[in-house]
């Protein structure tokens, strides 16, 4: 099989949530001597990108996106041992988590997934994270971006606190802050002084890319 055809089939299998097919095709790519990174980048990640697009278009929803991600991960497990370390270049470092008081992390997990697929290095703090911890971990990790999610209206003030702590410590400019989640709006993001608002997980990748290339775009300013 042609390399491009194989990549296309792998991407299709990810979109179709077919773990077994992905596993077989990933194995085959190794037997054909195709570079593992290329298969991940042009096959698996492409498929996940298309799944993200379907999610954005409301063709796919959370269950489907998670199953696509499982299929992608099966492929990554096959290919990872064969990766040569030099061709792993990352777009930036992201620290993400769900605000203290909220244990709903479905949205955040989707963001991590799409960010990683999109080429970012992600440190996932988990859920129910105090504002100060976002800041300390971001400093430790040398993050470019802090992503804060919440599903609950009641925890929205925690997002503002993160921004305020950054300002108080005089390190606001060191990080781009992206907020998102059910009750969050672009207006709220602006109000609390965040740099970006992400509508959903697929959008988060685009916003992150924009922010690292151009500061003014992400809030539509």
């Amino acid at each position: 099989m042609e390399k491009e055809e194989l990549f296309r089939q792998i991407a299709d299998a990810v979109v179709e949530m077919e773990e077994d097919t992905v596993e077989e095709l990933a194995q085959q790519s190794l037997e054909d001597g195709i570079d593992a990174y290329e298969t991940i980048d042009s096959g698996l990640a492409k498929g996940m990108e298309r799944a993200g697009q379907l999610f954005d278009e409301e063709e796919y929803f959370v269950p489907e996106l998670l199953m696509c991600s499982d299929a992608m991960n099966v492929g990554i497990d096959v290919l990872k041992p064969h990766l040569k370390s030099e061709n792993v270049s990352k777009k930036g470092k992201v620290v993400i988590g769900v605000v203290e008081g909220d244990t709903h992390d479905i949205g955040k997990n989707l963001v991590r997934l799409m960010m990683e697929t999109g080429g970012f290095e992600v440190l996932d703090l988990g859920r129910d994270i105090p504002p100060a911890e976002f800041v300390s971990k971001a400093e430790e990790y040398g993050a470019d971006i802090i992503g804060i999610a919440t599903l609950m209206t009641t925890t929205m003030p925690g997002m503002k606190e993160v921004v305020d702590i950054l300002a108080d410590k005089g390190i606001r400019d060191k990080f781009k802050v992206i907020v998102g989640g059910g009750p969050i709006s672009p207006a709220f993001a602006k109000k609390i002084g965040a740099d970006g608002y992400a509508r959903n997980a697929a959008d988060a990748v685009k916003v992150a890319e924009k922010l690292l290339s151009n500061t003014d775009l992400a809030l539509g300013a």
Binding site: V62, P63, E64, L66, M67, D70, H104, D105, I106, N109
Partner: peptide, 11 residues
């Protein structure tokens, strides 16, 4: 676990 639960609704 909600992540598994959501997948299992289909699977």
């Amino acid at each position: 676990d909600p992540m598994n639960f959501l997948k299992e609704l289909r699977k």
